[in-house]
């Protein structure tokens, strides 16, 4: 087992523990729970295999669902952003998307914000659509998704800055 894999597994475990033990208890305005585990999919390197990302998304989503009793809403949202990640990368980073070091460091700020927000927003919209599962509650779904995306984005951005500084 190489060093990079160990490092990644440790990172995923810490993030999952943070989500399950701390952020799942966090209820901003009574309903907002930041999904900081999305940082795993944000920081997944572009050179890594996309199929592994899908399986990883499924497993992490399943663990979150089991802990939050959301019956698959997280899993579906997570595998969807994992599947769409390649396209989101291209939209956000353009020609630099395939460069190995292009992800966090040395990329334009706007591209990074766009990439983070796209992943988080798509996830939130799918998640709340499945949670409410009612077309009549479309405005509520978008309101919740919007507030949740902003909160999650701020927290993930801060954690990302901390990681990159270290």
């Amino acid at each position: 087992m190489n060093r990079e894999l160990l490092k990644n597994i440790s990172f995923y475990t810490i993030i999952l523990a943070l989500q399950l033990l701390i952020f799942n208890q966090f209820k901003l305005f009574g309903f907002i729970t930041p999904f900081i585990y999305l940082i795993i999919f944000v920081h997944y390197k572009t050179t890594y295999d996309k199929t592994v990302l899908l399986i990883l998304g499924f497993l992490i989503g399943l663990i979150i669902d089991l802990s939050m009793q959301t019956y698959g809403c997280h899993t579906f949202s997570t595998i969807t952003i994992c599947y769409l990640r390649g396209r989101i990368e291209k939209n956000s980073f353009g020609v630099n998307a395939n460069l190995p070091s292009a992800m966090i460091k040395d990329t334009p700020l706007f591209s990074r914000i766009s990439f983070f927000l796209s992943l988080i927003t798509i996830h939130s919209i799918i998640y709340y659509s499945l949670i409410f599962f009612n077309i009549n509650l479309l405005s509520t779904i978008f309101l919740y998704a919007f507030i949740n995306s902003i909160t999650t984005f701020i927290i993930i951005w801060i954690i990302s800055r901390l990681i990159s500084n270290n």
Binding site: I79, C82, L130
Partner: peptide, 12 residues
């Protein structure tokens, strides 16, 4: 993705 989605929706 389709297989995993199917599993997820079965779960739901």
């Amino acid at each position: 993705y389709l297989i995993l989605s199917f599993i997820t929706f079965s779960f739901l």
